[in-house]
Design a protein around this nucleic acid. Structure first.
Lengths: 145, 145
DNA sequence: CCATATTCTTGACTTGTTCAAGAAAAAGGG
DNA sequence: CCCTTTTTCTTGAACAAGTCAAGAATATGG
């Protein structure tokens, strides 16, 4: 875990979900693996390091497509722009720093898929419980004391 | 609970947190009480029903000030614009419909302030755990079946 | 290698929100 | 009750993220 997949693996991932393999998509998927929790702009920058000519639209399209196919996950805490991560399907959550906005992964406190039970679901068919822990990251909490 | 406070009560709330009492602020605070989970535009509309001349900027300013003083809470699920609610300080969560975007309140499943424990906080000083239940509301789940 | 469907480029546009300057209004002291 | 000071509101422009649309380019299956 934590390793960034090789290009071949990235192409494989795309094929497995039935997507055409294009240079922009491979680069975007790679960037999301390399830069967890990056915003669209950072991803665009990383992709252009490799493919200087890609349009921002291609990156937006790729991110949407990859999100729809479940290869990446979009996260968007209040007040933040969209960010993406490659860790999918393992029910983890996030801690967000109120001061600098940094995001870290937090494994779910209670095991497998625990938080999926609301006390009263009002008739909703719930498929996911998202938990965001708000606070100050180590750097900001020492800096502000 | 659930009653919309009278104008006098609203003014009182403003004074208690040290804010000047102005017509726009009273109207905004009232609108947030009347329309829970409303977006800025709906609030603007509700305020203008009463004060046709208010600027949208006054509404934005009021909402920010009220939020800063803790009289209202801002919520902003992924893909949604800012919404506001008047129910504050009681650790409740939200269920959001993926289809129509409607938001309902959900009381915390485990009691008082339970979700505030991450399995590993990475050194964060956490002050709030926000839970969003994603799914389909009763209307949308029957419509799409 | 070709045909077809998909994807990418280009560039304009929308929407929600913020910024800034001056006018208006609230609150406290005389 | 009026005046002064500070805060808030109005007006209007600006901004950023993301979306839309038309045509050019490219991937894939045959």
């Amino acid at each position: 875990m934590g390793d960034v997949p090789a290009t071949n693996d990235l192409e494989q991932m795309l094929r497995e979900v039935g997507l055409r393999v294009t240079r922009p998509r491979v680069a975007v998927l790679g960037a999301v693996h390399t830069l967890p929790h990056a915003d669209t702009d950072s991803i665009l920058g990383a992709v252009r390091a490799e493919l200087p000519e890609v349009s921002h639209q291609a990156v937006y399209d790729s991110l949407h497509t990859l999100t729809a196919k479940g290869l990446v996950r979009r996260i968007q805490p209040s007040g933040s722009v969209s960010r993406y991560e490659s860790r999918v399907g393992d029910n983890h959550h996030h801690a967000v720093c109120r001061s600098c906005g940094v995001i870290v992964d937090v494994d779910c406190a209670h095991g497998a898929a625990p938080c999926l039970t609301a006390s009263d679901d009002h008739g909703f068919v719930i498929d996911e419980a998202e938990v965001i822990y708000w606070g100050l990251c180590p750097d900001c909490s020492t800096a502000s004391s």
